[in-house]
Computed example of a mutant assay.
Amino acid sequence: MSHPLRRVTDLSLDATTVTALRSALRATADEVVQAIIDEVPPYANALSGRMGGTIRRAVRTALGHYLDLASGNATGGDGGDAAYELGRGEVRAGRSMDALLGAYRVGARVAWRCLAAGAVPAGLPATEVAKFAELTFAYIDELSAASAAGHADELAARGRDQERHLEHLARDLLAGATPDVLLASVQRAGWQPPHTLTAVLLPAAQARPAYRALDPGTLVLDDLPDGVGVLLVPDADRPRLLRQLTDRTAVVGPPRPWKRASASYARAVRARSLSADIRDTEEHLPELVLSADVDAFADLCARALAPLRTLPAATARRLEETLRAWLLHQGRRDEVAAALFVHPQTVRYRMSQLRELFPDLASPHRVLELTLAVGLRAG
């Protein structure tokens, strides 16, 4: 990408002045680098060894290109491209643009002092020295702008790459990928695994707005089938999470170890298919257990309650209602009567009927089957 430097002046140095300045380039570059090391803390240890040599050569190249500009022998494109790449490289090195701008300011001051010290003895008139100063600092401004553009573009590219890697990680988690695959995805995404992840299902349009209010380590997908979005929230404080989602149509799964986030997602999906009214799956565990295998539950109900099917429908409903209350209140007759709004003697009569229909009503296995069969039925 080209970032051409503007010619900001008509200054054209004579050959004698340029020769004098070029002879001092190496010393000037060394002085610029040393000043940056001394005055810009992020570069204190970054300009030593091989990296220091590279930077010194880059500074000499920039200064040489600057002299080409000042003498009218260059267009400026190479300097802008180099500065742009330098900005990108600072992102890779983990440094902010503030550090690089600080280095440019220090470099401009030192370079101007050194170059002016060479230009004046070479006979550059005072009026041209002023233009020379203008060109020096305008050149640094152009380099700074090119580096800032490179820094911003690299950050944006890295942000897009990381977002893709995070989305890929979220898909691997929902798919229940193997630990090796998950760890590889984690490394690519630069994501810090939490202890647990909690899956939240909500309309796709609400996914990213909700995500912005949650832990920054939350993973988000908003392109699942049927217009559904999912959030995978790390180490969630459940009451707080539910409060944050109060105004959203959300289903919150259980917390699970992060490698088993697919289990939290699967439960949220099942809860959503079971009822539109479920928000916190932890409050609906019986329904979720009994809906895990709908056919098995239907078969259990049919077998366990088969004796009632021999009775008239109204009688069967009354006895099933009584059986449910008797099981849920553990056979305490007065409590059963209160729950049914009938007299305790009515409960005794109905229970005698039920014992005839279910001779093994005292069997733990029979009690378990009947409890499951009638516990969640409407009758």
Rank of each mutant, 00 (worst) to 15 (best):
L169D: 09
R7C: 08
D277T: 12
T249M: 01
G217S: 15
G89S: 15
A20F: 11
W326E: 14
L357R: 05
R256S: 12
A148K: 06
G107A: 08
V181L: 12
R92I: 13
R95M: 15
R272Q: 05
D334F: 13
V374I: 00
V186Q: 12
A175L: 14
L47W: 02
V342H: 00
R303E: 09
S275D: 15
A313I: 13
S144M: 03
V367H: 12
G107L: 03
P42A: 05
G331H: 09
H165P: 04
G118C: 05
S96I: 00
R113I: 03
A204F: 10
Q162S: 08
A145P: 00
A82H: 11
V32T: 06
A82D: 02
G102M: 06
S48N: 00
T322H: 09
V342A: 11
P255D: 05
D10H: 02
R240W: 15
G123F: 04
N45V: 14
V8K: 13
V230K: 02
V374C: 09
S71V: 03
L376V: 05
Y66W: 15
H151M: 08
A146P: 10
G52S: 08
T16A: 14
A116F: 05
L308A: 00
A35I: 08
E321Y: 07
G379D: 13
R7S: 15
E154S: 10
S96W: 08
D222A: 01
Y139L: 04
F358Q: 14
M351D: 01
S144V: 04
L285S: 12
A20G: 12
H329L: 12
P286H: 14
A177C: 00
T127N: 08
R164D: 11
T28V: 05
A157F: 15
P179V: 09
A93R: 13
L124M: 07
Q192N: 10
A316D: 04
N45G: 04
P42I: 11
L25P: 03
P125W: 02
D153H: 13
L290G: 03
V269A: 10
E154T: 07
S144H: 06
T315V: 14
R238M: 10
Y265A: 09
K131L: 15
T246W: 04
L361C: 15
A27T: 09
V269H: 09
A29K: 07
V120K: 04
A337P: 10
G76E: 11
P125N: 03
L221D: 15
L13P: 06
S2T: 06
T371V: 06
L202D: 04
L135S: 10
T54Q: 15
A46N: 11
G176A: 13
A122H: 09
E369F: 02
L308E: 01
A339K: 05
V374G: 13
V120N: 12
V228G: 01
R92W: 07
A130L: 06
T249Y: 00
A298G: 07
L376T: 04
S264K: 13
L201F: 05
V294P: 01
Y349V: 02
L288N: 05
A306P: 02
L368E: 14
T54A: 12
G80S: 11
D38C: 07
